[in-house]
Simulated scan of single mutants.
Amino acid sequence: MKELAYYDGTIGTPEELTVPFNDRVHFFGDGVYDASVGGNHKVYLLEDHLDRFYSSAKALDIKIPMEKKELGELLTRLLSMVEGETHFVYWQVTRGAGARNHTYGDDMTGKLWVMIRPNKLNDPDVPIKLITREDTRFYHCNIKTLNLIPSVIASQKAKEAGTDETIFHRGDIVTECAHSNVSILKGGVFYSHPNDTMILRGISKTHMISACYRLGIAVIERPFTLSELMDADEIIVTSSSNFCLHANQIDGKPVGGKDPVSLSRIQNEVISEYLSYTGKNSLFD
C-alpha cells in the first residue's frame, strides 16, 4: 500500500474511507493529534509521542479507545503495511460522534484516525527563511489540539511572503512557530522558551536539549526577545519531521551564520539519534 488511512477500526486508502458526518471534529475541531517520522518502518520516538498524545487527550477529557501500548502496536503494524523507507505518520482522536451540541455525554468514546504516507526529510544544511508575526492565538498552546486555523493562516502568510515558517511572539517575547519550535544559540549557549502554556512542548526540541547536554553545550530555558532572536549566533527551528533546521533570514533581514561549528555538532548529534533509533543509514534514503 502506498498510502494508508485508518478510521475507527477500518483500514483503506484515504480515498476509500468515509467519516460519519456527526463526528465532532467536523463541528468543533474537537480532538487532539500527534505525528512523527517513520524510518525503516519504525515510528521515531514513539513512546514520547504517545505520552504527549495521551496527555493532550486527558487535558480535554477525550477518551482514547485503546491503551497506550495497544495504540503503539497498532501504529507500528499499520506502518509496516505502507511501501517505502521514510514516512509521515499521523494520528488523531476525536471526542466521538453525536448530535451537534456544545456539551457531551460522559459515555462518549473517542474515534481514532491514522494516516501514513511517504515522506522526505529536509536537508539541515540548507538554510531556511523566516518571518515574524504577533502571536494572537489562544493561550493553551501546550495542548496539541485540532483547532489549527490561526496556525494555518500564519503558515499561509509565510508562503505568500516566499518564506518557510512564521515565528510567533507575544509583545517582545518570542514563543514558537506556526508548526515548529524555535531556539537560539548565543555565545555558545542554547536558549529556548520554557515549557509553559505559551508553547507546545516540542518532542524534537526536548531531544535537541538532551543532545546539547551530551555535547557539553550549556542550556538555558527562559523566554527570549525579538532583539535577542535577531542578534543570535544561530536560529534553530525544530519539529517532529524537521529535527534541526537553521535560519538565515527573518523579515527579509540576514540572521544567524555566526556559530556553524556548534550548529553542526547539534545537528549531527540529533541526526545520529534518529539513525540509531530507526536503523537507517542515511537521513534521506
Rank of each mutant, 00 (worst) to 15 (best):
P20Q: 08
H102V: 07
H207C: 07
P14Q: 09
V270H: 02
K68Y: 02
Y33W: 06
T238A: 14
Y191I: 02
D233S: 12
I199V: 09
K157Q: 13
S36R: 05
G187Y: 12
P254M: 11
H169S: 04
M198W: 13
S155H: 05
C244M: 15
E221G: 04
I271S: 12
D51Q: 05
T166H: 02
K129G: 08
S264F: 10
N181R: 15
I220F: 01
G279I: 10
S227H: 01
I167V: 14
H26Y: 13
L226K: 10
R52A: 07
E70W: 04
E16T: 07
N101L: 15
A218Q: 10
I250S: 08
S180P: 14
H169C: 06
L60Y: 08
K258D: 10
P65S: 05
S227Y: 06
G252D: 09
P124F: 00
A211R: 02
N181T: 07
R117V: 02
D196P: 07
Y213K: 08
D259N: 15
H193P: 06
H41G: 02
H41P: 05
I128A: 02
V25K: 03
Y277H: 14
D51H: 04
M108I: 12
G188M: 13
I209H: 06
V43F: 00
H140V: 14
D164T: 01
F27N: 02
A97P: 12
E70A: 15
C141N: 09
D259M: 11
V126I: 15
I153Y: 11
N268F: 06
V255L: 12
S56H: 00
N248C: 11
K68R: 11
S241D: 13
D259A: 15
Y139N: 14
R52W: 01
L4H: 06
L112F: 12
I203T: 14
S80G: 05
G96P: 11
E221Q: 00
Q156C: 10
N248V: 14
I149M: 10
G72V: 01
Y6P: 14
V152P: 10
S151Q: 15
V237E: 04
S264I: 06
K258V: 05
H193V: 00
I236H: 06
I209Q: 08
V43N: 01
K2S: 03
W113N: 14
V126G: 01
L74D: 03
S272G: 12
H246K: 04
S180H: 14
I149L: 15
E70N: 14
A5E: 13
V37G: 00
D231I: 11
D23P: 13
R24W: 13
I149Y: 07
P223Y: 03
S282P: 08
T94G: 13
K205D: 08
L17K: 04
S241F: 11
C177D: 09
P118Q: 02
V82R: 00
H87C: 03
G252R: 10
T163L: 02
V152C: 15
L45P: 00
Y44E: 01
Q92H: 12
R100L: 12
S56F: 02
G84H: 00
S276L: 03
R95I: 11
L283S: 05
